[in-house]
Simulated scan of single mutants.
Amino acid sequence: MHTRWFLAGIALALGTASVAGACAVNIPPASRIEYGKAQGTIEGVAIVSVTTARHIAERQADAHPWQAHAAIVEMVEGSALPETFQFERGCGSSACEWNLPALPQAGDRWVVYFWKDRSGLFRPWLTMPMDEAIRFDPSFAKSGKH
């Protein structure tokens, strides 16, 4: 009888550990931005307007992946950023993300932090709605850009 409870306890602990361990390095957005700028990962920042967005997979638990197409409205840092591009969100779970943003609508303003890949192309590194950028990035809060 005790063996059955012991094995059930181990199974429960292992299941819990795998969920918790999956996001052991969940870095808050303000820290991601600070780290990305300090390490030179962020090579450009832009305010963008979503042109279209659609779900790209079925909902699984609390994740519902989507892809948005966007156009730059204002370059905040960097140069030679792509005028239009796409980015994805909603792929992680709430255990791994600071939020799970809903599918954006055309015209929604987002901030995109870009990195440069090995071929020299700018790629979205971190994306968030404008109101979150104002809350998490001191340079937006100070500049009044929005």
Rank of each mutant, 00 (worst) to 15 (best):
M1S: 10
H2P: 10
W5A: 15
W5F: 15
W5R: 15
F6S: 14
I10A: 06
L12S: 13
A20R: 10
A22T: 12
A22L: 11
A24P: 06
A24M: 12
V25R: 13
V25C: 08
N26C: 12
P28E: 14
I33E: 00
I33A: 03
G36I: 06
G36W: 03
K37V: 10
K37D: 06
A38C: 09
A38R: 13
A38N: 13
Q39H: 10
I42N: 04
E43R: 11
A46L: 01
V48W: 00
V48A: 00
V50K: 05
A53N: 04
A53F: 03
R54M: 08
I56L: 01
A57I: 06
A57L: 09
E58M: 09
R59T: 14
Q60S: 15
A61Q: 14
H64V: 02
W66K: 06
Q67F: 05
A68P: 04
A68E: 03
A70G: 11
I72D: 08
V73G: 11
E74Y: 07
G78Y: 08
S79V: 13
A80R: 15
A80W: 11
L81Q: 06
P82L: 07
P82A: 09
Q86A: 13
F87P: 04
E88D: 13
R89W: 11
A95P: 01
E97M: 10
E97D: 12
L100H: 05
P104A: 00
Q105T: 11
A106T: 07
D108P: 02
R109D: 07
R109W: 00
R109F: 01
W110Q: 08
V111K: 01
V112L: 10
V112G: 08
W115P: 08
K116C: 07
D117C: 03
D117I: 04
R118T: 13
F122C: 02
W125H: 14
W125F: 14
W125V: 06
T127N: 15
M128Y: 04
P129I: 04
P129Q: 05
M130D: 07
D131G: 10
D131W: 13
A133M: 10
I134Y: 01
I134R: 10
R135T: 13
F136P: 08
P138E: 01
S139R: 00
S143G: 03
